[in-house]
């Protein structure tokens, strides 16, 4: 059984994200040895000039991508939650892409198989996007820590507004 404090994923704070795409370049360079956003595991969305956010795999508890794959090409690590794609099984049909609510599953332009964020599991210093993000908008966190942060900031705001220490 996975403990709640073990399953981390890359989360983006839209308040901090400026849409600079540094994460995309860092990711594609690390994974593909090239600067090419369409090969990045994390993508930036600039919905309009003031709404910017980077999105990548959320390592869902019950991943729709895995459920959607008819060829059992996708598996999830019970420990880390990372989704692994068996390139021999994947035929690039794209059902997982459709199933993912976050657009975090992508089709590789050359191998024609799907790929997603693996938290740079081979890198000692963790996800390269987090490391490079100049705004510290990206963090590697668990859902529980996100909830903790939200609670703390809500309470801070409440007591600031009430003018209490």
């Amino acid at each position: 059984m996975v403990k709640i404090h073990e399953r981390k994923f890359v989360s983006c704070d839209p308040e901090k994200c400026v849409g600079c795409q540094t994460c995309e370049y860092a990711c594609s360079f690390n994974k593909e040895e090239a600067f090419n956003p369409i090969k990045s595991r994390i993508r930036v969305v600039r919905e309009n000039q003031v709404v910017n956010m980077a999105v990548t795999c959320r390592l869902c508890e019950d991943p729709a991508c895995i459920a959607a794959c008819p060829r059992d090409a996708l598996t999830q690590s019970t420990e880390t939650g990372i989704i692994t794609i068996d390139k021999d099984k994947c035929n690039g049909c794209g059902w997982c892409i459709e199933a993912c609510d976050y657009g975090a599953m992508m089709l590789h332009p050359e191998t024609k198989t799907v790929y997603t964020c693996d938290l740079c599991k081979d890198k000692a210093d963790g996800p390269q996007c987090v490391k490079w993000c100049p705004e510290e908008a990206l963090t590697l966190v668990t859902s529980d820590v996100l909830a903790q942060k939200a609670r703390i900031s809500a309470i801070k705001k409440l007591f600031q507004e009430k003018g209490q220490p």
Binding site: V18, G19, C20, T22, V50
Partner: peptide, 19 residues
């Protein structure tokens, strides 16, 4: 100024969006 955004590849980010 509602948000300061960046061009591609820029860690400085300077584009001040006024609303």
């Amino acid at each position: 100024v509602s948000k300061i955004i960046a061009c591609s590849s820029c860690p400085m980010r300077c584009e001040h969006e006024a609303v």
